[in-house]
Design a protein around this nucleic acid. Structure first.
Lengths: 236, 236
DNA sequence: CGCGAAATTGACTCTTCTCAAGAGGGGTGG
DNA sequence: CCACCCCTCTTGAGAAGAGTCAATTTCGCG
């Protein structure tokens, strides 16, 4: 199922001048790179690779080894785990600025696949360890990110364990608003929907049909102003 | 609700000789302390405190600040989060050797309360940072522990999102067996049950009654050989 | 414009929840 | 040491929410 794919058109791995790749990166300020000083940044750029990941392609697969840290520069990813009989649970959505693969492992705990054509920076952990000796903040940042992931997971647990279908769907849209929502000026919030209804249902622990009915309810009460396959306008 | 309580009878914070506290610790090998060299260990012992936590008392509370790392030396803890209307979700159980408070925060994401009279070692993060400069493995260990927590949370998410009541209960007992189970020789596994039925139900996203019915089923099919309020024998 | 996948809606089923009553077990006081 | 009481757990019956199966509609894409 969806092997790791290298779509390298945008990679900067070829030799020569690479000054500026990070300088112009619009997530530089929010990710681990902010811990790099000028020297670390130069080091980073020399081993870091930018990689395009095509929609539906996995960058990590459950059970497969992974030794890289991925920083999502653009696009979005879906994290999932499968039960033996094929039931799929979506354990999270990853957006611009988020990290995947905080720790090298020889058995990844989940699959991460691109929901749209996306762009990531990859850092080998082996190398990151070296950088960390001169920029100790990097490890603190990894610890912090790990905790953020954990807290998100705990919120997800509360959602799945205690919330009704309508509440779950509402919570999902709140998360979406916070992660990728934009405010066009009026009270409304707009957000792109890079995931399918099935993806959302699998995230919320609901069936497709139940999600659909909940969407109808949220539309009726006005929480959702308009929704299409890949876009939503909310009144929060 | 359950403030942080200091039940200090067992604390070693008073001055004088403290040699040996860690040397004789039976979880030394499995926890972060294993990263300490002799010098770090001496440092650690001088600022670390052992603390007894009485049953039902919280060592961390949702929304409250926390700047210590806790290592569970003996006993067990329940992690929980509450919705505004009081619904409680148990997000995890913590046993001997586990960590709590991997990161300092001024708003703890969850509450941790002792399920039985327990014993923890507390390390202030401020101090831990100093130790980490000479023992860099400590931070790696914190990253690793953070990831372990996250992976457990993901398993919990799968459980809540995709499993039936019977499957959830079965999974809980498997977890219990792995965490605190002992094999008395025959194929069976025994484990103490420090949590109530209500705690288990809140962990599994089920009602008390549903859990009770599932237990009856598991007894009938023989997965559970015997179960009382605080002890279980399983056939795995 | 039309095809096909994705999403919605409908009717019915089933698992889990709810409310209620009863049984069991542990601890305290007589 | 026993009995009682209280709290926890179990069991029962009916209701409700979400699941299932199936038909239909919508939307995005060629």
């Amino acid at each position: 199922m969806a092997a790791i794919v290298e779509t390298d058109q945008l990679s900067s791995r070829t030799g020569g001048a690479r000054v500026g790749l990070c300088d112009i990166c619009d997530i530089r300020g929010v990710s681990i790179c902010q811990e790099f000083g000028p020297r670390e940044m130069a080091q980073a750029e020399s081993t870091m690779a930018r990689r395009a990941v095509a929609r539906k392609h996995a960058i990590m697969s459950e059970g497969e080894p992974n030794d890289s840290l991925f920083v999502v520069v653009d696009g979005s990813f879906l994290l999932s785990k499968y039960l033996e009989d094929g039931r799929r649970q979506v354990t999270g959505f990853i957006f611009k600025g988020d990290l995947m693969g905080v720790r090298p492992t020889d058995k990844s705990a989940y699959t991460a696949e691109a929901l749209e054509d996306s762009l990531v920076c990859t850092f080998s952990h082996h190398y990151l360890n070296e950088v960390a000796t001169s920029a100790p903040g990097v490890k603190d940042r990894l610890i912090a990110r790990g905790q953020t992931e954990y807290h998100r997971a705990q919120d997800h647990i509360v959602l799945l364990g205690k919330k009704t279908a309508d509440e779950r769907v509402r919570s999902f849209f709140m998360l979406l608003a916070k992660s990728v929502g934009t405010d066009p000026g009026d009270g409304r919030i707009e957000a792109p929907l890079s995931m399918s209804r099935q993806d959302i249902a699998d995230y919320l622990g609901l069936r497709l049909e139940t999600l659909s009915r909940a969407l109808a309810t949220l539309k009726k009460i006005g929480f959702i102003e308009a929704i299409s396959r890949n876009h939503v306008v909310m009144n929060i």
